[in-house]
Design a protein around this nucleic acid. Structure first.
Ligand SMILES: [Zn+2]
Ligand SMILES: [Zn+2]
Ligand SMILES: [Zn+2]
Ligand SMILES: [Zn+2]
Lengths: 134, 134
DNA sequence: CATTAATTGAGACTTTATCTCAATAGTGTA
DNA sequence: TACACTATTGAGATAAAGTCTCAATTAATG
């Protein structure tokens, strides 16, 4: 699936509700919570927002960012596998396009007898702005 | 902090409540949810279990495992930084003692102007048992 | 247009976690 | 040991996050 195809396999019909949600996600500046997204779309039910968010995560159209402390935020994923850099001070989230995990994965997989299907990596730290303050 | 010191800096007094919780965590076979831990300790309040769990995560005495799909499980961390291998079929969770993230971290850090403080990596796949079934 | 099944909305419900605050109990000092 | 001080706890209220139900709506197909 490429990033222009806004309909994951799971969806069998295209609907205006989902168009509305997708547009909001793509246009959202930065990251958002499910609740924030839902709140910004009064014409769409909460259930639909959660359903769409869940379905989109199966593709890489949406990525879930695990903010330190356990809160979950989302952002448009652009259709590319990637990881995140989260600033612990200001909360900024940057995408990291490179992924080095494959070789590591293979080594671990053979050592533990696993077949690796996916992985999740998040880096936490301080952005250039925040590390010069305090 | 080493794994024998069962009192993170955040705690200023040692209490029997926390001793009870720590013992349950150390003795727990495998991973558990906050609710399961709390349920197994009727003499300890839920709030104390959550408070202790949160405090212990600041050290590596407890590690939080992010199970695919968003559920959170915990396990005794042994005081060592490590990652996890989660079986998507049976839910088994293995610790991965090696961590290759440092070099990757440094490269990303300089490229994005970040100072990296920590990271989280989880691998998802199928254990040797489950991959032969189905 | 009619049929069929996917999708939706509204709200109840569940799960997970945090908060409040009075009561309890460590810890250091006398 | 007794006292003062304050960290910690318990119980329950509350909040946050996500799921579920089901009748009504709507896309797709012919
Ligand atoms: Zn991303
Ligand atoms: Zn990766
Ligand atoms: Zn672990
Ligand atoms: Zn690591």
């Amino acid at each position: 699936m490429n990033s222009k195809d806004e309909r994951p396999t799971k969806f069998r019909r295209s609907t205006s509700t989902r168009d509305t949600i997708m547009k909001a996600i793509i246009d959202w500046p930065g990251h958002f919570s499910a609740e924030e997204l839902s709140g910004s779309l009064p014409s769409v039910s909460r259930a639909s927002v959660f359903r769409t968010l869940a379905a989109l995560q199966e593709s890489t159209l949406i990525c879930r960012v695990l903010v330190d402390g356990g809160t979950t935020r989302y952002r448009f994923g652009g259709g590319q596998h990637h990881h995140h850099l989260v600033c612990l001070e200001c909360g900024e989230i940057q995408d990291i396009p490179d992924c080095d995990a494959d070789e590591f994965s293979r080594r671990i997989a053979s050592r533990h007898g696993y077949t690796i299907a996916s992985h999740q990596l998040e880096l936490y730290g301080y952005c250039s702005n925040c590390k010069t303050l305090d």
